[in-house]
Amino acid sequence: MQVSVSLTVNGKAVTAAVEPRTLLVQLLREHLELTGTHVGCDTSQCGACVVHVDGASAKSCTLLAVQCDGTSITTIEGLAKDGVLHPMQEAFREHHGLQCGFCTPGMVMSAVDLLQHNAKPSETEIREWLEGNICRCTGYHNIVKAVQHAAQQMGG
């Protein structure tokens, strides 16, 4: 049985018919072809799937699409505006905060949410916030540096 969900994704109104068991990440990747949001685990640990739901970061693998009816979703594809990278994206590039790129979308979306809560996080606060985002490539060193740099750039 399919049900209809209507939501805003990266500023665009979207309506889709989905099974209730469809995850938000499946709606994004499979229905809307927004494949920047990744699935790295099945136990809500890795954070490759992090998007913003009504401005707050959430794991799109741990949300049903139907739960998000009426919400506004921002994915990694919606972060740059008019072709200009978000300062967090710029900072990750500047500080080599990514290698294989698979955890990167979730990592960036999570880090953006951190700065919404805490404009000037300490190294410890950054590391603690990123508890829900696992990276196997970078050892996190340059991710921490990137988030610190973005905070500076954004005036924190």
């Binding site: 494949t35 920047g36 990744h38 699935v39 594809e77 080599h96 990167t104 979308p105």
Partner: peptide
């Protein structure tokens, strides 16, 4: 030199097998 592959990964335009 800053990595040229980063732009696609940072904007969700990577092309992984499952994509």
């Amino acid at each position: 030199v800053k990595r040229r592959e980063d732009l696609r990964f940072l904007t969700g335009n990577g092309n992984y097998t499952d994509d």
